[in-house]
């Protein structure tokens, strides 16, 4: 797609989705290694480093192709943004900038865990919290996978919001833990 089939000259960017860009079947359950392999294989052929001695136009096409691959990789390699992107493709896009949580159940859970994090007085407390969060995230990803496969887009959107909140919680816990110097030697 990115190359002409007969002459192997790099082509201008086509409007295709991130999965097609990496030659992957759209879906939530994708192995990290598979995504990475697909991405690296394509960069091998399209990266601007392969076109340094070529004419400006071909260099530009290569840069555009390489940028598109990077964007696709960035979006698809993280399960959360992959889910958000799948929802977007299905026409159920969630507003990524919307910070408010309107799901009362999730709101209660969020308040509770944030309080727990604020109360964590030692690196060990934070570590316990992080382990719990990781377990919840695993369960949430499994739920999300099932809903996307169904497909139950409303349920998938709810699970995605929950997964995003869990990622944020994990981030905050990590920062807290760094502040304790727990990860430092």
């Amino acid at each position: 797609m990115a190359f002409c089939a007969t002459c192997r000259a790099v082509q201008p960017l086509a409007a295709i989705d991130h999965f097609a860009r990496l030659g992957l079947r759209p879906g939530f359950d994708l192995d990290d290694a598979v995504i990475e392999r697909a991405y690296v294989d394509r960069q091998q052929d399209l990266h601007p480093d392969r076109f340094v001695t070529r004419r400006a136009q071909e260099r530009r096409y290569s840069a555009e192709q390489s940028m598109a691959l990077n964007e696709a990789f960035e979006v698809l390699r993280d399960p959360l943004s992959r889910a958000e992107y799948l929802l977007e493709l299905a026409g159920h896009g969630v507003d990524r900038h919307g910070e408010t949580i309107d799901d009362p159940e999730l709101l209660a859970e969020a308040l509770e865990s944030r309080e727990a994090l604020a109360d964590a007085g030692s690196p060990a407390d934070v570590a316990t919290l992080m382990a719990a969060t990781a377990r919840l995230a695993d369960a949430c990803r499994a739920d999300l996978s099932a809903r996307i496969a169904a497909p139950d887009w409303t349920g998938a959107a709810r699970a995605t919001r929950r997964l995003r909140y869990l990622a944020k919680l994990d981030d905050e816990a990590r920062r807290r833990s760094l502040a304790f110097g727990a990860i430092r030697t």
Binding site: C4, T6, C7, A9, V10, F51, T53, R54, R55, A56, Q57, E58, R59, Y61
Partner: peptide, 11 residues
């Protein structure tokens, strides 16, 4: 039908 970006080859 197409020309390599470098202009040195074509198809």
């Amino acid at each position: 039908k197409g020309r390599c970006g470098c202009g040195e080859s074509f198809r």
